[in-house]
């Protein structure tokens, strides 16, 4: 069953068409990727799914409900969480506070309860704190909960961003270049970690990624975007040998030598 279904989505900025008539589905329990050259419209599409942008045409349906016209907080509450290409943590809050903010969709008590420390509020906060600690362990940040998030290492910040997204208990997790700026060892770790998210937590994952090793190693289905339009779709091996993809990345004529680069 399709968890996310985008039909003929088009998003324009003035005269520029960033996403062009894009139709796309993600099956429940899948790990899928969107790839494409810089400026192909990948992040714009993420922004359309999560409500950062309102798109002009088409429809996106998540889990049976339309996301069109909804605000970002409503969409998050529907079960879509995301990370950002350029890490966007709450930098002057501690690691654990970041995760607690991510937990917002699960929290319901009001500020009046907090004022008088009423039992339901205290209970909820304790539960949230324990859950946050558990997530901290899960992503491997044990002992760094009280550090300001800006003081974490780059890799830890990426991990924290994922932990914060997980805190919302999403059904679908959108990862925008999760291994950007990582060395090969860290990338491999992250790849393994993403797989665990799906296998252990049952979260469907959609990622944008430039590192072909990561994409090919993990994705079940890959969609290629170029100039906002879909140019190819299929499993890793199909994509690797697709001449249109190679052309989009490297330009005409480079097709033959390019296969080697992608595999190395």
């Amino acid at each position: 069953m399709a968890l996310l279904e985008a039909t003929n989505v088009t998003k324009q900025f003035g005269g520029l068409t960033a996403v062009n008539d894009f139709t796309f589905t993600v099956e429940k329990g899948a790990i899928d990727s969107i790839i494409g050259p810089n400026g192909a419209g990948k992040t714009t599409f993420f922004n359309c799914i999560t409500g950062f942008y309102q798109f002009e045409e088409g429809a996106i349906v998540f889990d049976g409900h339309s996301v069109n016209g909804r605000s970002t907080d409503q969409i998050t509450r529907m079960g879509i969480s995301r990370t950002y290409q350029n890490i966007r943590l709450f930098s002057q809050m501690t690691t654990i506070e970041n995760i607690l903010v991510g937990m917002e969709p699960q929290l319901h008590t009001s500020w009046i309860g907090a004022l008088f420390r009423l039992p339901p509020t205290v209970k909820e906060e304790t539960k949230a704190l324990n859950e946050a600690r558990r997530l901290l362990d899960f992503v491997g940040l044990t002992g760094k909960g009280d550090d300001l998030s800006r003081n974490l290492s780059y890799g830890d910040q990426r991990r924290l961003e994922i932990a914060r997204a997980l805190a919302a208990k999403p059904k679908l997790l959108l990862l925008d270049e999760p291994t950007a700026g990582m060395n090969p060892r860290e990338s491999a770790e992250t790849t393994e970690f993403i797989r665990r998210l799906r296998d252990e937590l049952g979260i469907t994952i959609l990622l944008i990624e430039h590192d072909m090793r990561v994409v090919m190693g993990i994705s079940e289905n890959i969609t290629v975007l170029d100039y906002g339009a879909k140019i190819a779709e299929g499993g890793p091996s199909d994509i690797q040998s697709n001449p249109r993809v190679i052309e989009a990345y490297l330009g005409r004529g480079a097709a033959a030598s390019a296969t080697i680069e992608i595999e190395s």
């Binding site: 999560t50 950062f52 907080d73 998050t76 809050m93 506070e97 903010v101």
Partner: peptide, 18 residues
């Protein structure tokens, strides 16, 4: 926490469900 998140990054704060 909501206030601080708002102070740090309004867009992301909203995307967190605030």
């Amino acid at each position: 926490r909501q206030w601080m998140a708002l102070r740090e990054d309004e867009d992301v704060a909203e995307a967190m469900g605030i």
